[in-house]
Nucleic acid binder design. Structure first.
Length: 755
DNA sequence: CCTAGGATGTTTTTT
DNA sequence: ACATCCTAGG
């Protein structure tokens, strides 16, 4: 047996070596999911499967890269020829090859969210609709969800249910916006993020030139990571590739229903259930990875406890043999600023006491806006950190502006790029002129680009437009002759952007210039780095053109930037971004009602996904887990008061450091006044009991029945109203005199029966 | 056509 | 608090 197989436990090994037919791996946090995936691929390669026949789909570039690196360690360079990447990037790659079959240029532009929103704003205005009722964010989400459920504009228009929903939300014309949006994207030769999936499905569905057969015979082995976060559309594509008459159905999906946190963008746990029914008849094998190799006992147990508060889940029994470890610490502060200070103090202490590096530590929060407070506190103490997410490098205005010029030079029909640069830097083409062009384009059903010199405007504007067009035409020409770095340099000068940026000596201006230089360096890097040609992918001619560069950057995020050599910094990121990562010490902050769980989730009564997110967050920790919340916090400029998060109460005290309760009782009894805004005053929510812990004797969980009078260390005396579930999953509904009704998992409860 | 200053909305999470 | 949108006046 190969050496790497010996390093696996029995279940893991089975999940690796059962390489034929459908396989589902349910993998708890830290259970070696990535190891199974990578070893499975390595195993396939060792069995002689050609690398290009393996398609491994992940959600982030980072996990794809990590996977490739780890496969390479086992089997060497052949790993680079496995098709491993994100859904979006790999599908974009296929679409570049096949785009013309479905009416797109192969150099199609990828619209990011900003582009999509900007186009929608134009459309909504053009239809004279109220932008407040038809807010772009909401409209875009609606369209995105339609695409994710494979509902094209025509079906949308015919679907009474959807139309009624729209009428209810006072947006009866949404279907028209959708149709126009799709039309405009196609006219601009552009695909948005959803299109990268949707158009691929359409390609497979319409199947011109039997293109589907080509990919079916090419990708003989499919692996899907984070399967719980796939949406209907993604699963539909997977099925197109795998589920057909005579197919060996070599598909392996890996996921964890308890870590499904992308419901808001259409991910559905039903895919896991559907997968079972779809492949049962083809000999589906299921493996459950339940041993956690990441975290110590208290962390694993706390996670187990809180997840039982969710109703729907596949039963799992996650355990760890890493020892008891440290208990979970909870920090409570008065204000959000204090939270920042206290967390950073705590970080310093941990670093000293346990000799942790900056890179061992991460601060996680629910919303990106929370990062600022910690940045300030870390700055004051001169501790290095890096913020992930939020405004990414490629979303900065100056970067987008320059890229818009680049995009136009490759695809002049790119409407959003044109709108960005037509009057930037200012060249006398104002709003009125632009409106006239847009109008002409709509009336004659032609791209904006073709209309800019035909539009009927005054001589000044006419002149400016002619000059603009000539300038872009030069760029288009040069782009074909020069490499990406050379042409970008030329564009930067000739467009006037460089002059404008250099002339701005303000702090912000300097930083904009720095960003442009960083972009330029990135492009130089792209040109100078040799890429090994993959012989199987002859369709792709590796070159250093601008067009090639643009294809590669569209789907990059901040995560994908090289940090250089100094990587000893504290990581700050959202709980969503943290999925799949692990750190010796995690600080999970802002644990307040309306923040985590979020206000939106509470409004729509969807706390379960928030709880899964909480579960994901705490299971990132290997040894130290610190949770924090603040009494008051600034939001939209004024102070708001929130209660501590309900999730804090769902962790049993067994796993918490003692300091929390004593401290919080003291602070919590302070009454406050003068609460501003329409937020209700925060009601202190700790429950003082005068039970002496030393005389407290919890009864065995199995003995607790409905009707019992019971004692709980924190909640005091209560009556068991009912008990449901069986064995390990028994949940008691208990009414406490002080704390009200609670649902408690008996497996973990410490309850003393009184009578 | 451009600018400045005021009004307004925005925060959930991401490829 | 901050960014974007809107409006009036030059």
């Amino acid at each position: 047996m190969s050496k790497y197989l010996q390093s696996l436990n029995e279940v893991q090994r089975q999940a690796v070596i059962n390489s034929q037919g459908p396989v589902m791996v349910i993998a708890g946090p830290g259970s070696g999911k990535t190891r199974v995936l990578t070893y499975r691929i390595a195993y396939l390669l060792e069995q002689g499967i050609p690398p290009h026949e393996i398609l491994a789909l992940t959600f982030t570039n980072k996990s794809a890269r990590e996977m490739k690196e780890r496969i390479a360690k086992v089997v060497g360079n052949v790993a680079n020829r496995v098709w491993a990447g994100t859904f979006h990037s790999l599908f974009a790659r296929v679409l570049r090859i096949e785009a013309e079959k479905i009416g797109f240029p192969s150099d199609f532009t990828i619209y990011d969210t900003t582009d999509s929103k900007s186009l929608l704003t134009t459309i909504i205005k053009g239809m004279n609709l109220d932008g407040k009722v038809y807010n772009v964010g909401g409209v875009r989400a609606r369209i995105s969800s339609a695409k994710s459920n494979i509902i094209p504009p025509k079906l949308y228009a015919e679907n009474e249910e959807l139309r009624t929903e729209d009428r209810h939300s006072k947006r009866p014309y949404l279907y028209k916006i959708y149709a126009e949006y799709v039309r405009r994207c196609k006219k601009a030769g552009a695909m948005d993020f959803d299109d990268l999936l949707y158009q691929l499905f359409i390609l497979f569905y319409k199947n011109p030139d039997n293109v589907l057969e080509k990919y079916r015979s090419r990708f003989k082995y499919l692996l899907v990571d984070e399967f719980q976060d796939t949406n209907y559309l993604q699963y539909a594509i997977i099925k197109k590739l795998v589920n057909f008459e005579g197919s060996p159905r070599n598909i392996c999906v890996v996921g964890d229903d308890a870590q499904s946190i992308y419901g808001f963008r259409g991910a559905t746990i039903e895919n896991i259930l559907n997968f079972e029914t779809d492949y049962k008849k083809f000999g589906l094998q299921t493996f459950k990875l339940e041993q956690n190799y990441r975290s110590t006992y208290h962390i694993v147990q706390a996670a187990n406890e809180i997840i039982t508060f969710n109703k729907n889940q596949i039963k799992k029994d996650i355990w760890s043999d890493k020892g008891k470890g440290h208990k979970i610490k909870i920090i409570k502060t008065m204000t959000d600023t204090d939270e920042g200070k206290r967390i950073v103090d705590q970080i310093r202490e941990q670093k000293n006491r346990y000799h942790l590096q900056n890179s061992d530590i991460a601060i996680l929060y629910r919303t990106n806006a929370q990062s600022r407070i910690f940045e300030e506190a870390l700055n004051r103490q001169r501790i290095k950190y890096k913020v992930y997410g939020g405004m990414s490098f490629y979303e900065r205005k100056e970067v987008k502006d320059l890229i818009a010029y680049l995009r136009m030079s490759v695809n002049p029909n790119d409407e959003e790029a044109l709108k960005r640069v037509i009057n930037f830097p200012k060249r006398g083409i104002g709003n009125t002129t632009q409106q006239k062009i847009i109008e002409l384009a709509i009336n004659t059903d032609r791209p904006l680009w073709e209309c800019i010199t035909e539009v009927n405007v005054g001589p000044r504007a006419k002149n400016a437009l002619t000059e603009f067009k000539q300038m872009i035409q030069v760029f288009i020409q040069k782009q074909k002759e020069l490499d990406a770095a050379q042409v970008t340099d030329l564009i930067l000068r000739q467009s006037g952007m460089l002059k404008l940026l250099k002339g701005d000596l303000s702090i912000e201006g300097m930083s904009r210039m720095e960003n442009i230089e960083a972009l330029l360096n990135g492009i130089k890097d792209f040109v100078d780095t040799d890429v090994v040609l993959e012989e199987e992918n002859v369709e792709e001619i590796e070159n250093k053109s601008l067009a090639q560069y643009l294809q590669n950057i569209a789907l990059l995020t901040d995560f994908d930037q090289d940090d250089g050599d100094d990587n000893n910094y504290i990581t700050l990121m959202s709980t969503h971004s943290a999925k799949g990562l692990e750190f010796p010490s995690i600080f999970l902050v802002g644990l307040e009602e309306n923040l985590f769980p979020s206000y939106m989730a509470l409004q729509s009564d969807d706390v379960e996904e928030e709880r899964r997110l909480f579960y994901v967050a705490i299971t990132r920790a290997e040894q130290f887990l610190t949770l924090s919340f603040a009494n008051s916090r600034y939001k939209f400029g004024d102070i708001r008061y929130n209660n501590p998060s309900r999730f804090l109460e769902e962790i049993s005290e067994l796993h918490l450091e003692k300091s929390y309760t004593s401290k919080s009782e003291k602070v919590n009894t302070v009454s406050r006044s003068g609460v501003s805004g329409n937020f209700k005053k925060a009601v202190p929510k700790t429950y003082t009991t005068n039970i002496d812990p030393s005389s407290f004797a919890p009864s065995p969980p199995a003995s607790i029945q409905a009707g019992h009078k019971v004692l709980h260390l924190r909640f005091g005396e209560g009556k068991v109203l009912r008990v449901d579930g069986a064995n390990d999953n028994r949940l008691a509904t208990i009414f406490f005199q002080e704390a009200g009704e609670k649902r408690i998992a008996l497996r973990f409860a410490k309850l003393q029966i009184l009578k």
